[in-house]
């Protein structure tokens, strides 16, 4: 039952050109244009080609994850979620499928930007390191999936889309996913280090450098997950109560 719903929703998602455009094409093109610029410096302890690869992979992943969560808003407004609630499919499964699909949408950008880095700059990581990188870049989407669902369940479609874009842009830019945080003034750097986007990319930077992600970063990701999870749960209950 849940599998049928997952298949149905995956098909719909794959056909949505916005996802491909913003989460895959956008970061790949950005990488191809800008990854050559900062050569010389080392960023996050890595060769810039690798550091920027991970930043932009994270950028695409967060874009995709948030976007999928926010589509819930349209489905709610269209009465689709209400229609599903009068079928035997439990409401909890609907949320599970949404969260799963949101987090899975992290894979295409990470893989695509990785390929671009490989082709353009001969960036080579071992297969084992790639496996860890993909796994962490997927697992690390949890706070963003929850944030997307919070917006999807909490906001009307008119507001959800611009809010989603704004939140994404602020988190991505200030988190150092586009321009490296190392170039920020000190106060902004400190802010970046508190954001989930920076700590999410840090999972990748550490992995590429052959290190385990620092505990402080993991704790910050967990803390953001708890906050977004609480907001998402509140928004979900409120929307369900309204029917």
């Amino acid at each position: 039952m849940m599998y049928a719903y997952l298949r149905f929703e995956s098909r719909r998602l794959i056909r949505d050109p916005r996802l491909l455009l913003f989460s895959v094409l956008g970061p790949v093109v950005t990488y191809v244009i800008f990854s050559g610029w900062s050569s010389g410096d080392r960023l996050e302890g890595l060769d810039p080609a690798v550091a920027v690869m991970i930043g932009l992979a994270g950028y695409g992943a967060v874009a995709g994850v948030l976007m999928v969560g926010a589509t819930v808003s349209q489905e709610r407004a269209a009465g689709w979620l209400r229609q599903l609630r009068v079928t035997p499919l439990p409401a909890s499964r609907v949320v599970t499928v949404k969260a799963l699909l949101a987090s899975v949408s992290a894979f295409p950008p990470v893989i695509a930007v990785g390929l671009a880095a490989r082709i353009q700059h001969d960036v080579a990581l071992s297969a084992g390191r790639w496996a860890v990188l993909l796994t962490l870049m997927w697992a690390g989407t949890v706070p963003f999936a929850l944030l997307g669902l919070a917006m999807g369940y909490g906001l009307t479609p008119q507001i959800a889309q611009p809010a989603n874009f704004l939140v994404f842009l602020v988190l991505a830019v200030l988190g150092g996913l586009l321009a490296p945080a190392a170039y920020f003034p000190e106060a902004l750097q400190r802010l970046a280090h508190a954001l989930p986007t920076y700590r999410y990319a840090e999972l990748g930077w550490s992995t590429a450098a052959g290190q385990a992600p620092p505990t402080a970063g993991l704790l910050i990701l967990v803390a953001w997950s708890v906050v977004f999870g609480l907001v998402a749960a509140w928004a979900y209950r409120r929307s369900a109560g309204r029917g």
Binding site: F8, R15, D16, E75, A77, G79, W80, Q83, V86, T87
Partner: peptide, 29 residues
């Protein structure tokens, strides 16, 4: 699965074919 309902003012969601939509409904019951 003893109840089926057609709700008032419900819209549609992109992007799915008619067959996929009714197939989904069938697989839920």
């Amino acid at each position: 699965g003893r109840v089926g309902a057609m709700m008032q003012d419900a819209g549609v969601v992109p992007v799915a074919t008619v067959r996929e939509v009714v197939e989904l409904a069938r697989s839920l019951y």
